[in-house]
Each structure stands twice: as structure tokens, then as C-alpha cells.
Simulated assay, not measured.
Amino acid sequence: MIRGRYGRAAERADGERSGRAGAGGNGRPFGSVRWLLYGPVVVAAAYRGRGIARGLFTTALEAASGRAEVMVAFIEMTNRASWTVHVDGLGMTPLGEFDLDGRAYGVVGAACPAA
């Protein structure tokens, strides 16, 4: 189950998941929002700070234009460097969190430009 302030999901008694999407989804149900999974992105230490992650992010947003409304990434909560790059640096919006196999992940999203 995804839980959070910006996007929220709940599991109904019948096991179906429902929820609402932020960051370009305008609070609509997750199932009605066209989204694109972004990542993972790994930049070699020698090349960090040179705009490579920003270039990849911008290119992905441009490529998603007209095909998706929201670009979504999952970041392991212990990976503070990735959180800093994606949320603080690239401006992605935190949408919620989920647990998988005992590991916590944050869900972040960015609105894709219209075609």
C-alpha cells in the first residue's frame, strides 16, 4: 500500500487498490492517470555535479510528453543522496511511501509537459 501526504492509496476490503495521484495527476484516481516509470539512474562518481542527472531527467520528461501525465520514480528511503537529487535538485514531488520485502521506498513524481 502506498501511503503519504501528496498521493495516497488504500487497499479496499476486497483487496483492490485505489488512490489519488498528485504531481500532475491533479488528485485523480491512480488508475486514470497515464504515468511513466523513471529510473533507475546511476551517475559515476567522477561525473557527478556535471548536470548528467538533470540532462537525463529533462530528456525523459520531453520523451514522455504526450505519452504520460506523470513521471514516477521509486527511491529507497535509505538513499538520501538520490532523494536530494530528485526532490531537492530536480523538483520531483513526494507522493507517498511503500514497503517491499522489509525495505521502505519513497514515490516521487513530476508532471510531464503537454504535447
Rank of each mutant, 00 (worst) to 15 (best):
F57I: 02
R54G: 12
D99S: 13
G22M: 09
A63D: 09
V70W: 03
E11K: 08
N79K: 02
R80E: 14
D99I: 08
R12T: 09
T58W: 00
G19I: 01
G89S: 09
A45H: 08
A23Y: 01
C112R: 00
E11G: 07
R8G: 14
F57A: 05
F57D: 03
R12E: 13
N79H: 09
G109R: 01
A13W: 06
G49S: 05
R54N: 03
V85C: 14
A13L: 11
I2E: 12
Y105M: 10
V43I: 14
G15Y: 05
G91A: 07
G7T: 08
E76F: 07
L90K: 07
A44T: 06
L90H: 04
V108E: 04
G39V: 02
L37E: 14
G31Q: 09
F57E: 04
S32R: 06
R17V: 11
F98T: 13
V70A: 03
R5Y: 11
I52R: 03
A73V: 05
A53P: 00
G96R: 02
V85G: 07
D99A: 11
E69N: 01
Y38R: 02
L37R: 07
Y47E: 15
R12Y: 08
L90A: 12
A21I: 08
S18E: 15
G22L: 08
S65F: 01
A21F: 10
T78E: 13
A21Q: 13
G19E: 03
V108L: 05
G106H: 02
A10N: 04
V70I: 05
G109I: 02
G96A: 04
A53M: 06
A9Q: 14
V87Q: 05
R8D: 14
A45R: 11
T84V: 07
E62H: 08
M1N: 12
R50S: 11
R80W: 10
M77I: 09
L95E: 13
P29H: 04
T59I: 00
L56M: 14
R80C: 07
G89L: 09
Y47Q: 13
G55Q: 12
V41D: 10
M71N: 01
A46D: 14
R17F: 11
Y6Q: 10
S65R: 09
A114G: 15
A45D: 13
V72Y: 04
A104Y: 04
G109D: 04
I52S: 02
L56N: 06
A9V: 08
R48M: 08
A9C: 15
G19F: 01
A44S: 12
R48S: 10
A53W: 02
R80D: 12
T78M: 13
D101G: 05
G96K: 02
P29N: 06
G102L: 10
M77S: 12
G49L: 07
R3A: 15
A115W: 06
A81W: 06
G66D: 01
A21S: 12
Y105R: 03
S18Y: 08
A73S: 15
G51P: 05
L90P: 02
E16L: 11
Y38L: 03
R103V: 15
T78F: 14
